[in-house]
């Protein structure tokens, strides 16, 4: 099963899961960054666990469930996690982002309320050269808190809310969480003076 669809294929033994997803299923959201499991850009969930698809043979995934970034948004609506990435500024060039999303998804599924250390541990296998990570860690924290807040608030419609990444919603719910990984970050000064 790939993103909920049964896929049947005959593949050469040497084909990686990454190649299968990208070249056979055209799920190009999953990226190749190094091919040796060091960068995390190809992170997908294999039976709900994050793995680097470049170091899994496609045949090894026979009979397993595979989830990729393409399965994260439901009906064209961003998940809370995806919105959190957009709203915190966790996305720059975006090449590491699909892998980051899947690492975060794996974490939040096994622990919807992770500690800061658990967030770092879960995300540290994904390299990013643009953002300096702080916003990404914030995004995962924000997503966890926002989902918890929604659960507490009442009936849930999955984890999906809204179609527009409106800055107010997630941030508003979690104002104090916003800068957890950027302790001390000062607000922008407008006047040029302290």
């Amino acid at each position: 099963m790939v993103n909920g669809h049964m896929e049947t294929a005959s593949v050469p033994s040497g084909l990686t899961l990454l190649e299968f997803l990208r070249d056979r299923l055209y799920l190009t959201g999953t990226k190749e960054g190094c091919g040796i499991g060091e960068c995390g850009a190809c992170t997908v969930l294999l039976d709900e666990k994050p793995v680097t698809a470049c170091l899994v043979l496609a045949v090894e995934a026979d009979g397993c469930t595979v989830e990729t970034v393409e399965g994260e948004a439901a009906d064209g609506q961003l998940s809370v996690l995806q919105r959190a990435f957009v709203e915190t500024g966790a996305v720059q060039c975006g090449f590491c982002t699909p892998g980051m999303i899947m690492s975060a998804r794996g974490l939040l599924r096994r622990d919807p309320n992770p500690s800061d250390n658990e967030i770092v541990e879960a995300m540290a296998g994904n390299l990013c050269r643009c953002t300096g990570y702080a916003a990404i860690l914030e995004a995962v924290r924000l997503a966890a808190v926002a989902v918890a807040a929604q659960r507490a608030a009442g009936p849930l419609t999955g984890e999906t809310v809204g179609s527009q990444p409106a800055a107010e919603t997630l941030m508003g719910e979690t104002g104090t969480e916003r800068r957890r990984f950027l302790r001390g970050a000062e607000s922008t000064r407008k006047d040029g003076r302290r």
Binding site: E38, L46, P50, V51, T52, N126
Partner: peptide, 9 residues
């Protein structure tokens, strides 16, 4: 050892 993803394998 390595990363969380790799430790799943």
């Amino acid at each position: 050892i390595a990363t969380y993803q790799l430790r799943n394998r």
